[in-house]
């Protein structure tokens, strides 16, 4: 058995108190704590901190009126889901949520009538299938809007280190090795990358600045989970090499281009014009 010191305990205190340590190490630390008054005080303090936070927060209960309201809303949502009907007819929903839901309802109508609805989305009414659409949870035009928002008001990149960017893979579910690290075709440069939430999923967002100061935000995501190409805002443009369609559009002056390449979704929101951004996006996909 190794000799455990106060320093070892200090290093592992949080994980020890959270029960996240390897049992052998936890046992060694416990033996040390049993014989060290200062460490015993540290552990008690850390445990007291946990307990008091829990006591303070757990005492909060939802009000009965809210409980009733939310139970009604959940029942309605479940009923609507069962019948494939997301029209919200009751005034019980708060305005904040009724707005997006109504937008979602309107969107699904447009979407369905445009007969872009894919086979697997149609079995929503039977609902037992695990492939039931998640793309319908948030309307795709709202999603495109979110991309443009994130481009228009960019948050600082989390990292520009290639090894850290490579770590994003397992959070977004698709490989991101095809991203140009030094900008597009020698123009501009990569400021860095961050993960952004999109429709309960995560996407990697790469921020570039071109030589002329124009900015590009490129998103990489799993297109099976996030279906941007269905957006009614975007239109399909012909592509020379049969590599799969590219969808482009213009939102509040920013251009948006979307494509799938080998099962990886790429979207670009940029200050460039539509043809330029679709050209650069194709270059990335072919990279």
């Amino acid at each position: 058995m190794t000799h455990v010191t106060c320093r070892d305990l200090a290093r592992s205190l949080s994980a020890f108190v959270d029960g996240e340590l390897d049992p052998t190490l936890a046992l060694e630390l416990q033996l040390h704590i049993d014989g060290c008054e200062a460490c015993e005080a540290r552990v008690k303090f850390a445990r007291a901190s946990r307990t008091s936070v829990r006591n303070a927060v757990k005492s909060t209960k939802a009000s009965d009126s809210f409980r009733l309201r939310v139970a009604t809303t959940v029942a309605q949502a479940a009923e609507a889901e069962k019948h494939g009907d997301i029209m919200v007819s009751s005034g019980l929903l708060s305005w904040k949520i009724a707005g997006p839901l109504a937008a979602a309802a309107a969107f699904v109508l447009v979407w369905a009538s445009a007969s872009k609805l894919q086979e697997r989305n149609l079995d929503k009414t039977t609902s037992s299938s695990p492939s039931t659409s998640q793309a319908s949870m948030i309307p795709v035009d709202t999603l495109v809007d979110t991309l443009v928002d994130q481009h228009a008001n960019p948050l600082p990149p989390e990292t520009s280190s290639p090894s850290e960017i490579a770590q994003f893979d397992r959070f977004i579910g698709v490989p991101i090795r095809t991203v140009p690290e030094r900008g597009f075709q020698g123009q501009g440069h990569l400021l860095g990358a961050r993960m952004v939430p999109l429709q309960e999923q995560r996407a990697a967002m790469f921020q570039y600045v071109m030589g002329n100061g124009r900015r590009i935000s490129m998103y990489i995501y799993n297109p099976q989970k996030i279906r941007l190409s269905n957006s009614p805002i975007l239109r399909e443009i012909p592509v020379r090499n049969n590599a799969g369609p590219v969808y482009v559009g213009c939102v509040r002056g920013y251009s948006v281009a979307v494509t799938d390449r080998r099962g990886v979704g790429y979207a670009m929101a940029s200050d460039l014009d539509e043809s330029e951004s679709s050209r650069l996006l194709l270059a990335v996909g072919d990279h």
């Binding site: 309201r69 959940v74 949502a77 708060s94 299938s129 949870m137």
Partner: peptide
């Protein structure tokens, strides 16, 4: 939610939104 938003009304909206999404995304 109350500790996240620091407001009772926002916390209620956030929870309601969460539960509706959960029910709608149940297949996931």
């Amino acid at each position: 939610a109350l500790r996240m938003t620091r407001s009772q009304a926002d916390a209620e909206d956030l929870v309601q939104d969460t539960l509706v999404k959960a029910v709608r995304g149940r297949a996931l």
